[in-house]
Nucleic acid binder design. Structure first.
Lengths: 347, 347
DNA sequence: ATGAAAGCGCTAACAA
DNA sequence: TTGTTAGCGCTTTCAT
């Protein structure tokens, strides 16, 4: 094989079966009442020629690609796999497929990738990010195709947003520590370019206040949402605030970094220090002690995003409203949280 | 906005600019020497109409999509992100984009997804898997498009394969332990449906033999390439072979499971037991102690796969030979390996 | 029940 | 330098 044979076309099939291309198209689509004889001839030709319809041609003609574009910031971010998988399943089940595109974290590239997907004429767009800037919202609002934004705080949102109850989730995490008797609790934030970072900080403070702990006296340390940020936080925290017995982290990766950093310094978890994360990525169950965390319903988000898109497509008259759906986060108690050390407990 | 406006076409632009569609096409492609005036008119119209060419139409006409399909078994497998990212970068740089598709692990679905990509008329296919069955090789050999298979032992290969030197990598891992004084070493295998599992076992045995350790006396425990398999192996290993001081694992996830399992049993790593993994996934650096491992050059694989595809496309006359490229694996010493405990060292 | 023909939006000869 | 035209492979009226 030196020259690769061109794929056979519907015309090849029609010729071989002695029918028109229209008939082939109908038979394959299961439309009308073709004679059994015709069906046989067509199928035989299809088989013989190994015919597979070009979805490029089909898309051009039907003005639909039966494809959704899923653009995400970073495929290496362990938050996404579960979301992608669920979206893929849901799409597939409805006769769509998903094409993935990674946007990196730069905003100008984001719009670039959105355009690329639109050029592909995908039928809808799912934007899964941790930060969506004004220009992107703008673009989405005027785009010639429907979209859903996932996993983002809806500041400036112009489309449907599906996200987690970040405030409530963090409250849940903080309350868990408080219930265990902790009174000196710190928070390691994410980068504030992530739209959820301030909301989660808010949740932390709210839970403290509700329990009668003055939030302003609780240390808040800047992290970056990465392993390194958590690791560094461990050093700062234990040097500057040695009385802290519990830490609520912006996300799991930060918590895992903090866990490693604490161990390096010689504090044992959870005996000396309790740590709780957020997201419930796969690695949370892999570290030891296994990380207690509040889980985002990642699969659910992906599934719902696809379903929303499909409903938007099915009712083209319905306006694409800027709605917000917040999924609750779920406490997953594992091994990094325990009772506050007796020594540091008041009374 | 109740009805979404249809995207404007090249004809709209031509009309508004008062030129023919051919001219618009040329101006946009930068072909010929259009008059500055014409260029201006066209660009103005493009701007005004917010025109973006349909890549669907372009693909149909040019019989090229400038897209590569990347089929991988499981997007949740932490082995892939780095590979995908590198492939994406390389493709982008050459004017291609990558569409991703997850095949799950079932072989019949794999062929299904290969067909789907072919229907999309992608220009080439990258199959990144840990197992490629005969039917897939068959399909690839007769497919109307070029392909590269990545990260697989080339048993039955019909196309170019880019993979790691699995045998050499495992030898490297084992030699590292031997150099640290370990003499009683075990191996936890992967599932043997992964094509690399037996080759890695082979490398383990070869290194033992080369160092004068009888491979037949070294425990080999069945794993599954998952966390659970490693965890279970810890229990079996320490119950049945308590004299073992070092373990070479099929992959990092297994090693991380083994690490967690060992700790649960009360063996301390690396003081009592040294553990080495394989792959170098992100989480290897996150666990503590951080996992020593041999790294696969995942990014390099992705980059090379794309480059090979492009060269195949540029020289369409060149036969798609079944070649094999093996990248060396790299030892990454971290914290889970150390000197063999003195007690168990002979002499 | 089937065929003829038009056309989706684009590019590439070929003419002018 | 630009326009005219044909056609990529498919679906879908409209006839028959």
């Amino acid at each position: 094989m030196t020259e690769r044979a061109a794929p056979s076309t519907i015309r090849d099939v029609a010729n071989r079966a002695g029918v028109s291309t229209a008939t082939v198209s109908r038979v394959l689509a299961g439309i009308g009442n073709p004679k059994a004889e015709t069906v046989g001839a067509v199928m035989a030709a299809v088989e013989a020629l190994d015919y597979r319809p070009s979805s490029v041609a089909r898309s051009l003609r039907m003005k639909r690609t039966f494809t959704f574009g899923l653009v995400l910031t970073d495929i290496a971010n362990p938050f996404f796999p579960e979301l992608v998988k669920a979206a893929d399943d849901a799409a597939r089940q409805a006769g769509y497929s998903i094409v993935l595109s990674t946007s990196a974290y730069e905003e100008h590239r984001a719009v670039h990738y959105l355009n690329l997907m639109a050029d592909r004429r995908v039928d809808g767009l799912i934007v899964a990010s941790s930060q969506v800037a004004a220009t992107s919202w703008e673009w989405l609002a005027h785009a010639p195709l429907p979209s859903v934004v996932v996993n983002v705080e809806p500041v400036g949102a112009t489309t449907a947003v599906i996200t987690s109850d970040n405030e409530g989730g963090m409250r849940l995490a903080t309350e868990h520590l408080i219930a265990l008797g902790h009174r000196r609790i710190a928070h390691v934030t994410g980068s504030f370019t992530f739209s959820a970072a301030s909301v989660r900080l808010q949740g932390f403070r709210a839970a403290c206040a509700a329990a009668g702990l003055d939030p302003d006296t609780m240390p808040v340390i800047d992290g970056d949402g990465q392993f390194g940020g958590g690791e560094a936080a461990a050093r700062r925290l234990l040097a500057e605030f040695p009385d802290i017995t519990g830490v609520v982290c912006y996300n799991d990766i930060t918590a895992i970094g903090l866990l490693a950093g604490s161990r390096a310094i010689g504090r044992s978890v959870p005996a000396d220090l309790s740590i709780i994360g957020c997201d419930d990525i796969a690695a949370a169950a892999w570290v030891s002690p296994a990380l207690t965390t509040v889980a985002q319903q990642k699969g659910e988000m992906g599934r719902l995003a696809v379903e929303h898109l499909i409903s938007l497509l099915d009712n083209p008259d319905q306006e694409q409203a800027a709605s917000v759906l917040r999924l609750p986060m779920l406490l997953r108690i594992r091994e990094t949280t325990g009772p506050a050390p007796a020594a540091s407990r008041p009374r």
